[in-house]
């Protein structure tokens, strides 16, 4: 364990050094992300103002804002630590460069999915946290300490689920080999976690909502932690999210290993 932590620390330092070599680029990316968040906030501001104080699927203005912040922060964590690594997997397979990682005396999954930390998206986490704090302040801090603790735990469950889905997607790409933009695929897939679960309500969308809650539980990722803070603890859903996170972590690891087994080094 200590060895992995040390390695992770080294990855983080190297990543930061890389980023700092191109400081202007780093600042620019940050500015673009801030701009994007600004547009998003403006969008929801206009939306809620045009509604005359109504709610979107039971989420009032600041509750929804908290949801948006939570999504921004969680996506930021996934993008910083895992996105680039996982989407590079199919390239490693195609080029045969995966060999050099498999030869290292360390867990392959750890090495492949954590080796590069992209600090340029880390400010998103901070910006998302800022939005969450602002929303909480506007709601006059409705949460107890137990809720906050549950939120933190479930936030990391959300990260674990998102990571597992990402790993599953990228492992699948090993078989398909064609490297259709995985980043785009991932972005499209995550549209599902960006909205409250309650939106999936209606004769033909309810089953879709059920499917993405219980079978492919992508809707739990943001919904469970955000709901806990805004509306209070729902032990059944919290427990289910915890369970889903563990199952997904195990499943994605198995699929990743299976994918590696079918890998035949391609190049010299």
């Amino acid at each position: 364990m200590g060895r992995y932590l040390r390695l992770f620390g080294a990855f983080a330092r190297i990543g930061l050094a890389n980023e700092m070599a191109f400081r202007a680029n780093f600042l620019m990316k940050m500015a673009v992300e801030a701009l994007w968040l600004g547009i998003l906030l403006l969008f929801y501001d206009v939306l809620f103002r045009s509604m005359g104080g109504g709610t979107v699927a039971g989420w009032d203005r600041y509750g929804y804002l908290f949801f948006v912040g939570c999504n921004y922060a969680l996506s930021g964590v996934v993008e910083t630590f895992f996105l680039e690594n996982c989407t590079a997997l199919s390239d490693l397979v195609r080029s045969g460069d995966l060999d050099q990682y498999l030869l290292k005396p360390i867990d392959e999954q750890f090495l492949v999915t954590c080796r590069h930390i992209d600090w340029s998206t880390f400010p998103n986490v901070v910006q998302g946290a800022g939005v969450m704090l602002y929303a909480m302040a506007a709601l006059h801090w409705p949460a107890h300490l137990t809720q906050v603790i549950a939120f933190v735990v479930l936030f990391f469950c959300g990260v674990a689920m998102a990571y597992s889905f990402l790993l599953l997607l990228c492992s699948a790409s090993v078989w398909m080999v064609r490297n259709q933009s995985l980043v785009e695929m991932w972005w499209l897939f995550t549209t599902l976690m960006r909205y409250p679960r309650e939106l999936f309500h209606g004769t033909w969308v309810s089953p879709i909502g059920m499917f993405f809650t219980y079978v492919v539980p992508v809707l739990l990722i943001i919904n469970v932690p955000a709901t806990i803070m805004v509306r209070g603890l729902d032990p059944w859903f919290a427990g289910f999210a915890l369970f889903a996170a563990v199952v997904l972590l195990i499943l994605s690891r198995q699929v990743f290993r299976l994918a590696l087994r079918s890998y035949r080094s391609a190049s010299s």
């Binding site: 509604m51 109504g54 259709q180 499209l188 549209t191 909205y195």
Partner: peptide, 28 residues
């Protein structure tokens, strides 16, 4: 097939969001 399905997801979620907005509206 997966790509086509995924590409329609943003359309679906956008429609759902706006439907909820109009349902939740209190003024007109």
């Amino acid at each position: 097939l997966i790509g086509t399905f995924l590409r329609f997801l943003p359309v679906l979620t956008t429609v759902l969001l706006w439907t909820a907005v109009y349902v939740g509206k209190t003024d007109g």
